[in-house]
Amino acid sequence: MTDVVFLVVSLLTVFFAILALESRELVYGAVALSLSFLGVAGLFILLDSLYIAIFQVLVYIGSIAILIVFVIMLVRRDKWANVTSGNERILGIIAAVLLFSTMTYFSLSSSLTSQYPNPAAISDFYEIGSQLINDYWLILQLTGLALAVSIVGALTMAKFENR
């Protein structure tokens, strides 16, 4: 039963992700992206980590998808219409393949081999909180900084375009 649900959810996730990339209409793309995020949240629920799933919905759909819509609306469209030159496409494919293979390597070589993880260990948000604050605080800060920089960059771009 779980396998069927997993298959359906992951297929939907991938389908909507492809739709988000390929749809001509930007709003369709944004909606498809949100649905793809929702599929990822479903995968988290299948992994018994409801807490992460909720935050996936909260952050990715509630904020990031909306931010992307903002960017779509704010930045002029004609600038983005002709970015597909040959070189850039090949570069993109190379980057995607590299990223995919690296991630696959790391996830396969990591200790997370069990198909059914221990639910108690994951959904404990106390544990997540203390780990984020104590062990991974530097990464947390750096991620926050990167996000802030990207938002400032997007704003500057939007301002620059408007001028």
Binding site: S34, Y51, I54, V57, I61, G62, A65, I66
Partner: peptide
């Protein structure tokens, strides 16, 4: 948290 996660859809 769940109601707030669902509220996140309303802009959509």
């Amino acid at each position: 948290l769940i109601p707030f996660a669902i509220l996140g859809f309303s802009p959509l």
